[in-house]
Simulated assay, not measured.
Amino acid sequence: MTLILRLAFQASKYIFWKERNSRLHNSVSRPPSALIVEIKSILRCHLDPISRAQRVRPNGVSVLGSWLACFQP
Rank of each mutant, 00 (worst) to 15 (best):
residue 21 N to V: 01
residue 6 R to S: 11
residue 49 P to D: 00
residue 68 L to F: 09
residue 57 R to P: 12
residue 13 K to H: 12
residue 23 R to T: 04
residue 28 V to M: 05
residue 56 V to A: 09
residue 45 C to M: 11
residue 1 M to V: 12
residue 51 S to C: 00
residue 12 S to I: 11
residue 52 R to N: 13
residue 69 A to D: 10
residue 53 A to C: 09
residue 9 F to D: 14
residue 8 A to Y: 11
residue 25 H to R: 03
residue 7 L to D: 03
residue 56 V to R: 05
residue 54 Q to I: 09
residue 22 S to I: 02
residue 54 Q to Y: 08
residue 69 A to E: 04
residue 55 R to N: 11
residue 68 L to W: 08
residue 15 I to P: 06
residue 47 L to R: 03
residue 10 Q to Y: 05
residue 48 D to A: 15
residue 27 S to W: 04
residue 53 A to W: 00
residue 22 S to G: 00
residue 42 I to H: 01
residue 27 S to Y: 05
residue 59 N to G: 14
residue 70 C to G: 08
residue 26 N to K: 03
residue 44 R to N: 04
residue 10 Q to C: 08
residue 53 A to H: 02
residue 8 A to K: 05
residue 73 P to K: 05
residue 17 W to Y: 14
residue 55 R to D: 15
residue 9 F to Y: 07
residue 11 A to L: 12
residue 23 R to I: 06
residue 5 L to K: 03
residue 69 A to M: 05
residue 49 P to K: 04
residue 60 G to R: 00
residue 45 C to E: 11
residue 2 T to M: 04
residue 25 H to E: 09
residue 69 A to P: 02
residue 57 R to H: 13
residue 42 I to M: 08
residue 24 L to D: 06
residue 52 R to V: 13
residue 22 S to K: 02
residue 36 I to W: 02
residue 23 R to M: 07
residue 38 E to L: 08
residue 28 V to S: 07
residue 47 L to G: 09
residue 53 A to K: 08
residue 46 H to L: 15
residue 46 H to E: 15
residue 45 C to P: 02
residue 42 I to F: 03
residue 67 W to D: 01
residue 15 I to L: 13
residue 11 A to T: 12
residue 3 L to D: 12
residue 44 R to S: 09
residue 72 Q to G: 12
residue 54 Q to D: 08
residue 63 V to R: 04
residue 30 R to P: 11
residue 42 I to Y: 03
residue 52 R to E: 15
residue 6 R to K: 10
residue 37 V to C: 07
residue 34 A to Q: 09
residue 55 R to F: 13
residue 10 Q to F: 04
residue 67 W to G: 03
residue 62 S to V: 00
residue 64 L to N: 10
residue 44 R to F: 01
residue 29 S to M: 10
residue 40 K to P: 02
residue 3 L to S: 10
residue 48 D to T: 14
residue 72 Q to D: 14
residue 16 F to V: 12
residue 60 G to A: 04
residue 16 F to E: 15
residue 50 I to A: 02
residue 64 L to I: 13
residue 49 P to G: 02
residue 29 S to Q: 13
residue 7 L to I: 06
residue 18 K to I: 03
residue 3 L to T: 14
residue 25 H to N: 09
residue 57 R to Q: 15
residue 58 P to V: 12
residue 57 R to N: 15
residue 9 F to P: 07
residue 71 F to T: 04
residue 48 D to E: 15
residue 62 S to L: 03
residue 50 I to N: 01
residue 40 K to A: 08
residue 4 I to W: 01
residue 40 K to M: 11
residue 39 I to V: 13
residue 27 S to F: 06
residue 18 K to R: 14
residue 1 M to E: 14
residue 40 K to T: 05
